[in-house]
Design a protein around this nucleic acid. Structure first.
Lengths: 243, 243
DNA sequence: ACAAAAGTGTTAGAAATACACCCATGT
DNA sequence: ACATGGGTGTATTTCTAACACTTTTGT
């Protein structure tokens, strides 16, 4: 950034955002995909995204695109957990021109409707199980794969799992998030102790309880606490890591 | 990325890379800075970086800029640990025009000469202790601070510390890396056990030993091993994290 | 002999793990 | 009654933390 330059001397770069929006539904990790309406990759599934406008930051653009393409309420979009993943800049990743894309990961609780109607391109948006997502446009399969593994490791050492849960949730639901994302079973008593022993991870909602699945004992409700990091971390059981 | 567009309909974005290159020298974490020769921020210190060329990826650009601005040998630059940090895209971060910058973090062993001569802008490059780096150009203070904390946490759960060491190093040198970056003292026997107990973190160089600082018993030499993640992690002592 | 740095051993406490068991609710 | 899921207790093993001690070099 210290060399003399004339903006016009450089071929223009288009700068976009792409979003990997995850949710946990029905025991499987789902990602929000949009069916492309035009070439290239017309008819293929792609991550939602779009151009960064001249006066907005990448994060602002990401939230705007997400609201436009899903019809989610602005309040909800403003509140959800959004985090930069990384930037994809390989020449040729878009056949039309040079496109540099800042990718984001977002985590949302399970919505009543997959992609609400509303304006914009919402009608082409769908929740798709990540394991069933194949043949994505551009390099979106790579982005999705990077995002997925990042989410997996973030659950280990941050309190992010609550972002997948509704405002008030049971410890069973929280554990289901971990088990779904990691695809492992966890010991319930130990999970519970670990979570409760981490100050600020969750806060009990006094007195409240909820029937879960109609069956069984009603479960106590919790809210996300103020903590953001999990210390010590909650390591997934021997997942490939040789001990 | 699914809306119809004409490349020319969008104000051009300049896309650059910025590098936070760290090394450990004389018990302090240092960062490579360049003194700017022109406005804006003429005379101020800045992170090395520059424009991404039309046919290169951000990572390729980062390595090229690093070689150009420091005069480091291409082989060394090709081998060093380089990793995307994040992308900075706030409008107004460069007063001249819209500049989106992909920031990288690089770790290098302590060089004999700070910034070797060679061609390019190397004469304006200097190693500066990170704690003494103030008044950086643009938003580089933010980038540097983000990079610094990322390096700190990466030492906890990856084998990255060896990237600060020469090809063969003693466990004392490795421990000094941790102590310098974290700014804490570590118990030597426990550190040593932890490192040796992690398979693939370091490999003993058979028979080799080196006098360290002229005094004391010669230390055994080690090479970086094949492992990349540290499992279980090597947590820094209660660094702000309430237990 | 002494200082300095590497390297080994030991022990008390904390944490993770693997269970067995009890509680409240719907069918 | 019993299946289902929430919640508690406890013993075992493993890891961490702290520190005492030995070894090998230079001065």
């Amino acid at each position: 950034m210290n060399t003399a330059y004339d903006p016009r001397a450089f071929e223009p770069f288009a700068v976009t955002v792409d979003l990997a929006v995850f949710t946990v539904r029905a025991g499987a990790l789902h990602v929000l995909l949009i069916r492309r309406g035009q070439e290239p990759y017309a008819g293929a599934w792609a991550l939602p995204g779009g151009f960064i406008l001249p006066r907005e930051s990448a994060e602002t653009a990401a939230r705007r695109e997400l609201a436009e393409e899903t019809g989610l309420s602005p309040a909800l979009v403003a509140a959800l957990h959004l985090e930069q993943l990384r930037t994809y800049s390989e020449p040729g990743r878009d056949p039309r021109m040079r496109v540099v894309s800042v990718a984001f990961t977002a985590l949302v609780p399970d919505m009543p409707e997959p992609a609400a109607e509303g304006g914009g391109d919402a009608d082409r948006a769908r929740w798709v199980p990540v394991d069933g997502a194949a043949g994505l446009a551009f390099d979106h399969a790579v982005i999705l794969s990077d995002a997925r593994s990042r989410v997996g490791s973030k659950l280990e050492y941050t309190c992010l799992a609550t972002a997948f849960c509704p405002p008030e949730f049971t410890l069973g639901e929280l554990q289901a998030v971990y088990e779904t994302v990691w695809d492992t079973a966890l010991d319930r008593p130990n999970f519970r102790r670990k979570v409760l022993a981490t100050p600020g991870f969750v806060e009990a909602v006094p007195g409240a309880a909820r029937l879960t699945g109609g069956r069984g004992k009603p479960a106590a409700l919790y809210r996300p606490g103020p903590a953001t990091v999990l210390h010590p971390p909650l390591l997934r059981p021997t997942e490939g890591h040789p001990r």
